[in-house]
Design a protein around this nucleic acid. Structure first.
Length: 580
RNA sequence: CGGGGAGUAGCUCAGCUUGGCCAGAGCGCUGCGUUCGGGACGCAGAGGUCGCAAGUUCAAAUCUUGUCUCCCCGACCA
């Protein structure tokens, strides 16, 4: 490709609305432009990069035996109603009504659609296992799109769906995708960690997340010091804390007047205490049952763990009326003392049970109680009471005695074992060898294509721009003509043609521009190898070869340049185990 | 959805407090010339109903109200 014939509008100014480096550079390097909040148009260089990523994904999916299909991105609402996910997704589901009054959904994912499709086609165990995938646009009406491409409303996703006859087969399908994902991220040149994840609204029994560690990530990864185990924050288990002794001189519970101080911070301020000395009582509802959850004042309820503790049932915060009814007090003054009579279940976090004495809401507006002793003043056992792990991990926590560490990351892929959630609801069944009808066991596997590019940029950049892995850079090599003499142009054309013949993806900067501009553009685009041809070296019959990631260049004879660059490209690719 | 901020030229922004002499700068763009190894320089140009709508006023980018959009923090979320 000749630079003069393509369209790469680089800009010097940092766009006003781009906050993080990947977003800024994707705009500045002319990869994309914003159309509206959370939607972006990709320009030639950006799209070329995305295509390379998609091709890697496609190759590895094919190798893993997945079959590429494509299903409509406009889906009938009925499918979502059948699985109940219209409710679970809520406002995030993009919808429109067509001229006949039918409600259509803009695909945020395609479990329903693919399962529906499979339900009509799969009849026999002889057809299993099978795994369908597609790579296309997805739409989610996010509350708050941000960080450029990292949380956008429209994005490109590779989504795969496996159908298996039994657990063992599912395990194998899952393993194949898991392994393929490792290869994909390796080939794309992004570092990643695999964390155990909760399956959230996808439903199902097991999940791993592929996360690129970087500061601007939205996800929090929790891992042990030796990195042998990692979880996302929703899943990370914590050891119970050591039981604190109850002071001998603790008196009976005592009401304290705390007018209009309903929040933990306000109460601490008022009573001159610390959140870790308090307990938060939070009421949840599930199927008309009221569940009280107790966590320490400085901890947060982990809704994933809570959902697990409730047997996987859908739970949500109780509304104000329920809180008032159950506690006989305004919101902000709920407490565990005497609460058991008014709620269906009390879930106590391990850390609360370990407290020696605590302060809590009094179930009386404008009052708190102190000198509350767990086990004495409210039950830690009984029919309604369960003590378990309900909170999110924090600094200082351990698991099995190992210290937990935290880092941020970008989720680029996730694999789930779905089980029969979708196949049962949508009728994806088959007859086994004995003639028994069974629902397919399913798995689903997603990769955020745009996020791979953004995270590669987050990981690879300097003050001059992007430093991209060769596998996903828009071009592998750029030839910069620093001058316009015939000698320079002829050498450039020669090396350009030879490189193309070698199968190298090369960009020839043939623009009538000053060299400085060309160098800046080559750098910001992050093209891994640059060949500079100018009067400085051409006089001796040399061109200069320089890696984007390094500062020194090497002189190579014009006649040997293509060969040499071809070798460098192969070496760089081999480092990513791309093969050639 | 709560809190905060911003909408003026293609981009980044100044002007607004104190209404008028106020449609501005830099970058980018067009033409000519000089340049040509790290975003050159000179000259000459093009380009904006100041987000939109009402209102106040002799007079509104500037004041008032409404509205839309965008960004940040939080909540929420594969």
């Amino acid at each position: 490709m000749r630079y003069s014939k393509t369209f790469i509008p680089t800009v010097k100014e940092v766009p006003a609305d781009a906050e993080i480096i990947s977003h800024q550079l994707m705009i500045r390097a002319g990869l994309m432009r914003k159309i509206a909040s959370g939607t972006y148009a990709y320009l030639p260089a950006g799209w070329k990069s995305l295509r390379k990523i998609m091709e890697i994904v496609r190759q590895e999916m094919d190798v893993a035996g997945a079959l590429e299909v494509t299903v409509p991105m406009v889906q009938p609402m009925e499918l979502w109603q059948q699985t109940g996910r219209d409710v679970d997704y809520g406002e995030t589901l993009g919808k429109f009504t067509d001229r006949h009054g039918r409600i259509n959904v803009l695909s945020p994912t395609a479990e329903e659609e693919i399962t529906y499709l499979a339900a009509g086609e799969i009849n026999s165990y002889k057809q299993l296992p099978v795994n369908f995938y597609q790579i296309n646009l997805k739409y989610r009406d996010e509350f708050r799109p941000r960080f450029g491409v990292l949380r956008s409303r429209e994005f490109i996703m590779k989504d795969a769906y496996s159908f298996d006859a039994d657990e063992q087969m599912l395990e194998e399908s899952y393993r194949k995708m898991y392994d393929a994902y490792c290869k994909i991220f390796q080939r794309c040149g992004v570092e990643y960690v695999i964390v155990q994840a909760e399956s959230g609204e996808m439903g199902g029994s097991g999940s791993h997340q592929f996360t690129v560690p970087c500061e601007n990530g939205e996800d929090v990864i929790v891992h042990t010091e030796d990195n042998s185990r990692a979880w996302n924050i929703e899943k990370a288990p914590v050891d119970p804390l050591a039981k604190q002794p109850t002071p001998d001189d603790v008196g009976d519970i005592e009401e304290v007047h705390t007018p209009k101080v309903g929040t933990i911070e306000a109460v601490c301020d008022f009573l001159k205490t610390k959140p870790r000395k308090m307990v938060k009582t939070i009421l949840y509802g599930s199927d008309d049952k009221v569940i009280a959850v107790l966590v320490r004042g400085d901890h947060d309820v982990n809704e994933e763990k809570l959902t697990q503790a409730c047997g996987g049932k859908h739970i949500e915060l109780a509304d104000e009326a329920t809180v008032v009814k159950v506690t006989n007090a305004a919101v902000g003054f709920a407490g565990p003392v005497g609460l058991a009579e008014n709620v269906d279940t009390i879930l106590v976090d391990n850390a609360v049970a370990a407290m020696g004495v605590l302060i809590a809401g009094a179930n009386k507006t404008d009052y708190h109680v102190k000198n509350v002793v767990p086990g004495r003043d409210f039950p830690l056992e009984g029919d309604k009471v369960t003590v378990t792990d309900l909170r999110s991990a924090v600094e200082g926590d351990t698991i099995d005695g190992d210290k937990l560490l935290f880092k941020r990351g970008i989720e680029v892929g996730q694999v789930f074992k779905l089980g029969t959630k979708y196949s049962k609801k949508l009728g994806a069944k088959f007859l086994d060898a004995e003639g028994t009808e069974k629902p397919c066991l399913m798995g689903c596997y997603g990769i955020g294509i745009n996020r791979i590019l953004a995270s590669a940029i987050e990981l690879g950049n300097d003050k001059n721009g992007m430093i991209l892995p060769i596998s996903i850079a828009p071009w592998e090599v750029i030839i910069t003509l620093a001058g316009n003499s015939d000698e320079i142009i002829d050498a450039g054309e020669k090396v350009y043609t030879q490189l193309k013949d070698l199968g190298v993806d090369v960009l020839l900067d043939d623009r009538d521009m000053r060299p400085g501009v060309k160098f800046k553009d080559a750098d910001i685009l992050g093209i891994p190898v640059r060949v500079t041809i100018g009067k400085r070296s051409i006089a001796e019959g040399n061109v200069e070869v320089k890696l984007r990631a390094e500062s020194e260049s090497e002189n190579v004879k014009v006649n040997a340049a293509a060969q040499k660059v071809g070798e460098i490209v192969s070496t760089l690719k081999n480092k990513l185990k791309c093969g050639t």
